[in-house]
């Protein structure tokens, strides 16, 4: 059984820049613990002789030549932004940040 404290969840929420209420902390702590338990099932299946891996296919050195290709038109790029100004993405300023 995994346990995740409210403090852990509050910390993760801060890293994700999410505002989470006290009730949500309790709710998410329980839900996230369930997720961890589910993922932990994989540990049971793992065999000791199998080395940990990050890729299913044993490939290396997939590279591209340094050649410029087309970029997206700016209208398209900014079309998905919640707000734009002067050809740039507009976002709320993060507190305590300096330029």
């Amino acid at each position: 059984m995994s346990t995740l404290s409210r403090k852990d969840v509050a910390h993760l929420a801060r890293l994700a820049r999410l505002a989470v209420t006290d009730e949500e902390l309790d709710l998410f702590a329980g839900q996230l613990a369930d997720v961890l338990d589910a993922v932990a099932q994989v540990g049971k299946a793992a065999v000791e002789e199998v080395p940990p891996t990050t890729h299913a296919v044993p490939m290396t050195n997939v590279m591209r030549e340094d050649v410029v290709g087309p970029s997206l038109p700016r209208e398209i790029v900014l079309a998905g932004a919640p707000a734009a100004e002067e050809g740039r993405f507009r976002v709320p300023r993060i507190l305590q940040e300096e330029a």
């Binding site: 591209r64 410029v68 290709g69 970029s71």
Partner: peptide, 14 residues
């Protein structure tokens, strides 16, 4: 493959 040219109009090389 986006270009790295300095000084282009904002968000035109993405």
């Amino acid at each position: 493959g986006c270009s790295t040219t300095f000084g282009a109009e904002p968000n035109t090389q993405t």
